[in-house]
Amino acid sequence: MTSVWSDPAGLPIGDSGAVITVGTFDGVHRGHHDVLARLVALAAETDRPSLVVTFEPHPLEVVRPSAAPPLLTLHVEKLEMFAQCGVAYVAVLPFTPTLALYEAEQFVDAVLLERFRVAELLVGHDHGFGRGRLGDIDVLKALGASRGFGVTVLPPVHDADGRAISSTAIRTAILLGDLQTAAAGLGRPYSLAGTVIRGDQRGRLIGYPTLNLQPPPTRKLLPPDGVYAVRVQTPQGPFGGMLNLGPRPTFGDASRRIETHVFDATHDWYGAPIRLDLIARLRDTRSFTGIDALRAQLVLDEAAARDTLQRLATAASAGPLS
């Protein structure tokens, strides 16, 4: 079980030190999973605890807010994924203007050594740290040699086209509505999570009742408005569904909503936590001439969503060698 510590001084790390990796880990994508798997393995080999040191908020929100990217994973989502990777501890450092001014040597001495007793450090090939990210891999290796801790630099993980997997590339795919490419980089479907709230129940009147999800924090990246095939993860298990993300122009409603019609389920989920796994984008949002035209389109959307979910489920069960 992963333990999350907001007071890093209280981490139960013995004299032998810890095996550590450091980063923002937005998305916790396949490249990050490779780092975390190697972290856990090295910790087991050396009989030391594994520790992820991460930051909240994203450093760019402090250093250069105008350049801060929208987030693939909110803080709580990121912690859940760390737990699934089997790391022993996660230390969350508040990223403050003071921390942003730490030189590379100061960060290593005051944070990694004094507070966390680093014995082995694993980092990605493009890791940068300290003020202005001037602490590159060469600086880190030199500091490790002089301070007595090991530094392992891990190569990138590549996609099927040979490109290095990165949070930036995944964000670009999501912004284009290319959920298959995003899922390939993440190692899972991109998702939205929240609590079910009451809507205006218009969907019931046309035969397509919906779950209305509380809007996520504004820092969470949303794909383009449109209709999507989704898997709905509920307290009663997973269901297929179709999501309308965006306005409802047929009803003159310009507000951006997250409304999902769940297939083959009638449970009352008001107030329940729900996660939407976005599988495929089906079409743009558009206005219809009336309720009958909208209902006719929803029939087509449902058929397309069911077909997409079934086809992808069949392909996944067949395995990579089919």
Rank of each mutant, 00 (worst) to 15 (best):
L192I: 11
S166P: 02
H75I: 15
L99I: 10
D200N: 14
P70E: 03
F149S: 03
Y208W: 14
A160W: 04
V123C: 02
L74S: 02
V262S: 01
G10S: 11
A316P: 13
L42K: 08
V299S: 01
L154A: 00
I165V: 11
V40E: 05
A296D: 12
V299R: 01
R198M: 12
P215C: 06
E103H: 03
V87H: 04
V40L: 06
P216N: 03
E259M: 12
Q233A: 14
P57N: 12
V53F: 02
T195F: 02
P155A: 04
T73M: 01
A293W: 00
A229M: 11
S167V: 03
A296F: 08
T96E: 11
N244G: 14
S16L: 08
I13Y: 00
E259I: 03
H261T: 10
I291R: 09
T172I: 07
A296S: 15
E105Y: 03
R30F: 10
T46D: 07
G148A: 07
V111C: 04
G17Y: 05
K220M: 09
D277W: 02
Q106P: 00
L300K: 10
R147C: 09
A313Q: 09
A183Q: 09
G132Y: 13
P155V: 01
R248C: 14
F149P: 06
E80I: 09
A193D: 14
P49W: 07
T172P: 02
G31M: 10
T54E: 06
F288P: 08
H58C: 03
V108I: 08
F263S: 10
G194E: 00
L213Q: 06
G27V: 05
P189L: 00
T24F: 10
L221H: 04
R275H: 06
T289H: 13
D264G: 15
H75V: 12
S167L: 13
R198F: 04
F288Y: 06
E80P: 03
